[in-house]
Design a binder for these strands. Sequence first.
DNA 1: GTCTATACTCCGATAGAC
DNA 2: GTCTATCGGAGTATAGAC
Lengths: 191, 191
Amino acid sequence: MEPPTRRERILDVAVEEFGEKGFAGARIREIERRAGLRAGTGSLYRHFESKEALLQEAVAYEVARCRADLEAARATLPVLDDPEARRRQRFELILHELGRWQRLFRLMLTEGERVPELAFAVWDAVQRPVEGDPERAENIADAVAMTSLGGYYFFSLMQGRPFNDVSEARLIEALLAMTSTAPDLTPAERR
Amino acid sequence: MEPPTRRERILDVAVEEFGEKGFAGARIREIERRAGLRAGTGSLYRHFESKEALLQEAVAYEVARCRADLEAARATLPVLDDPEARRRQRFELILHELGRWQRLFRLMLTEGERVPELAFAVWDAVQRPVEGDPERAENIADAVAMTSLGGYYFFSLMQGRPFNDVSEARLIEALLAMTSTAPDLTPAERR
DNA sequence: GTCTATACTCCGATAGAC
DNA sequence: GTCTATCGGAGTATAGAC
């Protein structure tokens, strides 16, 4: 692995700074400081046109890195035969990756209008394509699992501790039990 | 109902402005403009000490109003005997109230450090207290439902349409089916 | 390509007339 | 309690030496 260029170091810390404080709250001087440039000198502008341009490039950079990490993580996982084990594996991966994508989620919530492509990029990478009828029981069960993992992540983030003191392992256990028992999820009107 | 005082009008629009743009991005002149004061004159400071103080009071104001709305909504609901109907009622209420609390959630994510009491206030109001053992099956099932509704709300917000095209009604249906079938949620090691 | 120095703008906040 | 006028500070951005 080559050492990161200065440009990459700037992008790195810019993602952090924008993610933590949003566009308006982010400080160029702070990004310079963290990237190893003298703070407040404007040296950053030899690398990027403006604060706005920096945000755009930082987001694109982080999306690319997150996607690569996700692919890499998927590639290292063993291929499992048991469907339940496969679902557990998937749930654990999702929960883990949510942390990796946290800053992009935050930017999506706070700077969505400023970077409209971000929403597409994130969902394109994160979301398993829905195959066939979205009303299919399997897809609904998957949506419940996905939303539950996402909600768990957000609520835990907000509470600053595991949501309602339910551990990750416990939640996954419950989700597996609920979706494997596979209650009839066909809409009532179709039965 | 009395007409809102100017102070209340300011608090009203301040919640909007802070919620949309965060503390750093919010503009006093914009709040003045929206509250019917001349923009950029600093007239706001006859009512509030500083931007920081305004944020604190705006948050407290919004928490109080959201809580009142929640109580009011609960009070108007009919008392149901059927436990399943009661759960459906509860799920629908949560999904509905999440929209009302949206700005506070956002402020919690973006300005959490600035207003540490906010997290306590919000969770105290929203969260049904966990009775007894948090590992109890009922509480775990409830946590799954709560997280799923929260995640559904957030993801739909981010996607700008119902998450994975699953309608609210459909999600609630699925959650009811999954939690009423009541699979054995006791942790494996206790069986 | 990094620094010094600084221009320029925007914003939060204050003083004081009415 | 709202306006006019303005201060002071902070922040983005630029010009130019090295």
